[in-house]
């Protein structure tokens, strides 16, 4: 019951912070536009007056895609570089804004206070940078361990040493679930660490991480189940999004606008999920034994 309550509290927290949600979404949209605008300019200059583009509206056409990449690949790679820059900027912006999100969720009793939000952004930025770096290292170590485990179970990665590819496939199906489960656990601990850091305004992240591990382990079923519940909701919504997306043929202005709105709704949902998960964990943290 505590899990379900926390799950709902997470969504409630999101609803209480609509403006914060909107702000995060707008940052995502604006940074994406920095690369999308040159991309649509490139399309306008190269293929907008080709009948090939018109034909491609009726469905996927590899011939046209191949011709585009082969003939306009160079300017497209410039756009892609810009997109990479956009993604990196968004990552930094998200690091900065995360402090505000946590501050608002943990401390703010009001609906949404700009003051609290920006204060949190500045206050926790460097700690969040370090925390993200530590967990990135943990994730990398986990990945390497899983890779070695994969190699061990498969016997070898060289086809010449293997009787058949079956051991490789078997190893894949054994290792990937293990990797996903532990990786999810690490993300859970990382989220708890963020909440704990803000609750206690703790400077030493070593203690924060140690205590979050303790918290997650002593409330393992609740925390992990809560995470899984959110993950399942996310998968369900993604599935529905994909189904809905297939309803549009993208060959008229109306359907293209429809696809755009649907896509933005999905992105909005993804942004909201992050807040809801932190909201739910925050509730668990406040109400469960530490």
């Amino acid at each position: 019951m505590a899990v379900l309550e926390a799950y709902l509290k997470g969504w409630e927290a999101l609803m209480k912070h609509l403006r914060m949600w909107g702000l995060l979404y707008v940052v995502n949209l604006l940074l994406a536009f920095t690369a999308v605008l040159p991309f649509s300019g490139l399309l306008g200059e190269t293929v907008a007056q080709s009948l090939g583009l018109e034909r491609s509206l009726d469905g996927f056409d590899f011939g046209l895609l191949g011709d585009f990449m082969n003939n306009y690949g160079q300017p497209f790679s410039v756009v892609l570089d810009q997109a990479k820059g956009g993604v990196l900027l968004f990552f930094l912006a998200s690091l900065f804004l995360m402090g505000g999100v946590l501050q608002s969720l943990v401390h703010s009793t009001r609906i949404f206070a700009y003051y609290d939000f920006w204060k949190g952004c500045g206050q926790y930025f460097w700690r969040l940078v370090r925390l993200t770096l530590y967990f990135f290292i943990f994730q990398s170590i986990l990945f390497l361990c899983c890779f070695f485990l994969f190699q061990m179970i498969a016997g070898s990665l060289s086809p010449f040493e293997l009787e058949s590819e079956v051991p490789v496939i078997r190893a894949f199906w054994i290792v990937v679930p293990i990797w996903l489960s532990i990786s999810t656990l690490l993300l859970l601990i990382q989220d708890c660490a963020k909440i704990r850091m803000v609750h206690k305004n703790e400077f030493w992240l070593v203690f924060v991480i140690r205590d979050s591990i303790r918290f997650v382990l002593s409330n393992f079923i609740r925390t992990y189940f809560l995470y899984l519940l959110y993950a399942l909701t996310f998968l369900l919504l993604s599935f529905l999004y994909m189904k809905a997306n297939r309803l549009f043929q993208a060959n008229s202005t109306g359907t293209i606008i429809g696809m755009f709105l649907l896509g933005q709704l999905f992105i909005l949902m993804r942004v909201g999920f992050k807040i809801a998960i932190l909201g739910g964990l925050n509730f668990l943290y406040k109400t469960q034994k530490r």
Partner: peptide, 10 residues
Amino acid sequence: NENGVRKYAN
């Protein structure tokens, strides 16, 4: 073909 541009830009 503005729709084509919009589709791929989207």
